[in-house]
Structures are given as C-alpha cells and as structure tokens.
Simulated assay, not measured.
Amino acid sequence: MSPDTSSAASRADASAPSAIAGTDLRDDLALALRLADAADAIAMSHFDAADLDVHAKPDASYVTEADLATERAIRDLLAAERPDDAILGEEFGTVGDSPRQWIIDPIDGTHNYLKGIPIWATLIALAVDGVPRVGVVSQPSIGRRWWAAEGHGSFTEVDGVERRLRVSDVDTLERASVSFQSVAQWDEAGKLDDLVRLSRSVWRDRGYGDAWPYMLLAEGRLEMVAEFGVQEYDIAALHPIITEAGGRLTAFDGSDSLTEKSVLATNGALHERFLDFFSPASERSA
C-alpha cells in the first residue's frame, strides 16, 4: 500500500527543520511520494504482461516499454512542478544544470521485471549540491514503499501503519547477515575471493537482489549490502533512507561519491570493520 502523502508531509513538518537553507525538504518529499504513485500505476499496468515490449540496449542490458513510460511520466510531473530543477534518469539522461537534481531509476531490476519476478522498484531521489537529501523506493509488486528526507527520519508502511526505520545494533561480523547481489558481479570486479572469504566470516549470506536488500538493511534485518557496477541512479535514493535509519553508505574505498561504481551499505556499527575486511585502512589511504 502506498503511504498517504499528506500524512508523510505532516510528519516531516513535526520533525527537525531542514538542514538545507532555502529548501523545504518536506514539500520535496511529498512530491517524491506523488511521483512514486504515478510510477507505480504505470509500472504495474505493464508488469507480467504477455505482450510486454522489450529491447536490448548497446550494453546488452534490457529496457522495457514500462521503463520508458514510467520515466516519461516522472519527468512530465517534474517539468510541471519543479521546472527549474535538473533531472538525471537512467533512460533519458540529464536535463538541466541546477544544483537541485532529481535522480530517477524508473524500474530498478528490469531483468526481474521482464521475467515476472516481483523484486523490482522505482527509485526517486533529490540531490542538492550533489548530496542525496530525499529518497523514495517504491516496490508496488509486493505492496511496499520506503522513504526519507534528510533530518526528518526514514519510514515505511506495513498494513496501513507507518513505521520509523532503524538499522540493527549487531556489532560483530560473526552475527552479521549480508547480501552480495550476484557472484558474477563480484567476479567481474576481481572480488570473488573476497566474497568467498566473506561468506565464511559472517552468520548468513544471500543474494536478495537490487534495491530490496538495502531496504532490509534500513529495517534492521541485514547488516551489510554491497555491489559493483552501479550508477548514480542505482544508489541515490537509497542513501537518505539508510542514513536516516542510522546506517552508512559509501563506495568500497570509503568515499561518499555516487560515481565510484561501487557501494557498501552497512548498519553503521560495522562499517569500518567491513571496509577493513575488503581493504585495510592503510591500503585505502595509500
């Protein structure tokens, strides 16, 4: 079920004031939730359709008519409501050069989507001066959505009840449950040995896939999610949801850049431990 945007805005209004001078993140969050409503309606209308139109991209990944229609709808709404803001989307690139940029992945998990597997989501973020301040992850195929705005907390809705998110307090690798996305991805990044070593060092490892494990992390159900080959639109929306829930999200080198093509998200308590596990601090600073 989608959250009521007016109640989300009201809750944000009762929270701490925005840290961004001249920017009302409450309004931006309410808009992001409305964008997700529109995206959900379009994506679900095409999901698991026998006649879904699918094309291969030059990079051998796939795009469906739902990806294109969903991103167009989001862009149209932004053009009407935030005409001065820039937009970066997976399917149609970048428009504008404003320090306020909406970052969109219309269907994260397209390969699942086109196979009728319900683990996919629409990712919507607002970055201000290059830092994601608002994030919405909407997974309508399983009736779930997660959202956050900087300084206002991170939330989800289950059975019509809004819940504030909080990462786990697990502080040892031996008790940690982790998600690694895919073996092939780690192999291509030259990190397959690290993945095997990780599997022998933690309590549990699974490849849940795409945005969902990051939301499980924000809910306190996982302690680490990591992957390679990511783009800005893959991770921008995840950032405020995880950090407002008390977690951390960086690249594998520990930097906060969205353009490093890797991501390591943790419950915060174990972040330095995982960074050192994959690359000791002495090597990261070299």
Rank of each mutant, 00 (worst) to 15 (best):
L31E: 11
S285K: 15
Q231G: 05
I242H: 09
D27M: 09
I241M: 02
H271E: 01
R82W: 14
L52T: 08
W146G: 01
P58A: 14
E223F: 07
G151E: 00
V54W: 01
D67L: 00
S168C: 10
A184T: 09
F155I: 02
R82P: 07
L123Y: 12
V128G: 04
T266S: 08
R26F: 08
M215P: 01
D108M: 02
R72G: 07
R200A: 14
S201V: 04
V161M: 09
A127N: 07
D24V: 03
D37F: 06
D84A: 10
H46N: 10
Q181C: 03
D105K: 07
L68Y: 05
Y233K: 07
E232P: 14
L78C: 08
R164N: 05
S141A: 15
A39H: 05
S10H: 08
A9K: 13
E150S: 12
V178E: 06
I142F: 00
V202I: 13
Q181F: 08
A69Y: 09
I20D: 13
T70G: 13
E188G: 14
D234W: 05
I235A: 02
N267V: 03
R75G: 04
L68E: 13
E283I: 14
I103G: 02
A245G: 07
V178I: 15
W212C: 00
A49K: 14
E162H: 08
A69P: 06
E223P: 04
D40T: 12
E223S: 09
D84T: 13
A39W: 13
V161I: 15
L165F: 02
A149L: 03
S177G: 10
D84K: 13
E283K: 15
S154P: 01
S98W: 09
T259F: 11
Y214M: 12
T266D: 04
P83R: 00
